[in-house]
Design a binder for these strands. Structure first.
Lengths: 136, 136
DNA sequence: TCTCGAATGTAATATTATAACGCCTCTGAA
DNA sequence: TTCAGAGGCGTTATAATATTACATTCGAGA
């Protein structure tokens, strides 16, 4: 029996599912090359396969890119629509990332953009520091 | 007459001054390798020379790193102390960057951090979109 | 059936960043 | 005066991140 599932918008291909699962299993951020290494046994062989899957996953809002880490995490709020305005608190000690939705801060940034006639496409908000578990 | 100027805290070395001037002259973001290419004639030869100067310039608050671009810009408010909380609006059409100080938004993020016992060290806030000159 | 868009596999390469080494020049304390 | 430490410099090599280019496959409609 081959795989003939009809593709809904959220169907993932094999590579996309592999990459998503690897990220989800990690429970934290991974670089593209860390994902690649985790998936060698599943047949993933080249960086491009990972990057392509990541691009798709980001487009559908299942994965975020952490710019200040050059790494990727699964979205904590995949049903929510505001994937363009998520924020992340990144612990520099343990590496854990906490995603949150800073709605008011984003509103203020949108106001700034609007005041300056800047057509805002997406925002990157990343906090660096030490999480409560680490600096206790 | 050799250079014997007594070193105050803001004295820059030759390499640091070269890198700062290259960035200032560019009037916009440059990557480390773009800076290197701009300074070949001044004797800059290796990436590390540029990265070392950039690190110092960032430490003294004269230069910012744009995480989402892997590039660097001169600080627009070098006298101001809050170099850890600047924000940037990056035009994806023309590449120009507008630095601003989103004090209220930063306060909200600081509140979030405080509420979550997150010891905030610095924030990255970068807006991507199209500037007024470009989408007119 | 035909064609189109999306995804794949692979090799090669481009871009960004750091490690490791030794040397030089200040400065300040002994 | 010496000398030890901190910071900067120059160089080579390499690591880490990301993309280009090209050929192929697959499935969904017209």
């Amino acid at each position: 029996m081959h795989e003939h599932a009809p593709k809904s918008k959220l169907e993932l291909t094999r590579n996309q599912a592999l990459v998503f699962d690897a990220l989800a299993d990690a429970g934290g951020p991974l670089t593209a090359y860390a994902i690649l290494d985790a998936l060698r046994e599943e047949g993933m062989r080249a960086p491009l396969q990972v990057y392509r899957a990541l691009t798709k996953l980001m487009n559908v809002g299942l994965v975020h890119r952490l710019e200040s880490l050059n790494a990727f995490v699964v979205c904590r709020h995949p049903e929510c629509s505001s994937h363009e305005t998520a924020a992340f608190a990144i612990c520099e000690t343990c590496g854990q990332v906490d995603e949150f939705a800073p709605d008011e801060a984003v509103s203020l940034l949108q106001s700034w953009a609007s005041d300056h006639k800047f057509a805002l496409a997406r925002t990157t908000i990343e906090l660096r520091g030490e999480c409560s578990s680490c600096h206790k």
